[in-house]
């Protein structure tokens, strides 16, 4: 009994620690005047990233090309350095189409994870979802929270630059995905790191050209 009590109080501290320790300190504010600006929604230009995916003990590297084809319509193609196409994703408003993928990527769980990660960066359907807004203690950041069924996605915007420097996807208790957006060049992050905490997956994107 004593042991159970210790264990449950330990778990309680651990779990609430995760949740309250982070988002609990944020205070809810009224909607900001500045709307959240899509990271790649910039004049329909394309962006080319050198990309490294490490999944469990496997390393896959290549080039990721993103292009906004028309409003709300994005195409994401991943090729190897030698030019072989690995996958081709199409995001149109709220729909997703897998246009192509090699057998190496043809695994439902992996494709779903990649799709979700890219969707977070494209921010295509967030205007349709319920949102709330928060500020940090010293009011230097505006946090946009997008609520989904069981998860929430938090976009952390630095007020002085209006740039998104971090995106987190969390359940009530755990952070599942953390995306850091670094080294902004002309409004676009030159380095993006996507880290998953529930699976061993890390994706690093380095901007080569736009």
């Amino acid at each position: 009994m004593k042991r159970n009590l210790f264990l449950s109080s330990f778990l309680f501290v651990l779990l609430t620690g995760c949740s309250l320790g982070h988002y609990g300190r944020l205070k809810e504010v009224s909607p900001p005047t500045e709307a959240l600006k899509p990271i790649f929604g910039d004049n329909f230009t394309s962006f080319l990233f050198k990309t490294n995916i490490s999944i469990y003990n496997k390393e896959i590297s290549g080039l990721l090309l993103t292009k906004q084809m028309s409003s709300g319509d994005y195409r994401i193609i991943f090729t190897t350095e030698l030019g072989m196409k690995m996958f081709d994703f199409e995001f149109k408003d709220t729909s997703f189409t897998l246009q192509y993928c090699v057998p190496q990527f043809d695994r439902p769980a992996l494709l779903k994870t990649l799709k979700n990660d890219i969707e977070m960066l494209l921010m295509n359907n967030i205007s349709l979802l319920p949102r709330s807004y928060y500020s940090n203690k010293d009011e230097t950041e505006m946090i946009h929270r997008v609520r989904m069924e069981k998860l929430s996605t938090y976009y952390f915007v630095e007020k002085s630059t209006q740039q998104i420097y971090k995106i987190e996807r969390s359940s009530k208790v755990f952070k599942k995905v953390i995306i850091s957006l670094n080294d902004y060049k002309e409004g676009v992050p030159a380095n993006i790191i996507i880290k998953h905490s529930d699976i061993k997956l890390k994706i690093e994107l380095n901007l080569l050209k736009r």
């Binding site: 080039l63 090309l65 292009k67 195409r75 193609i77 030019g83 196409k85």
Partner: peptide
């Protein structure tokens, strides 16, 4: 000089 042409995007990746 390597050129990867992606028809759907009308984009070329040159390396």
């Amino acid at each position: 000089s390597q050129e990867k042409y992606l028809s759907v995007m009308s984009e070329k990746i040159i390396s």
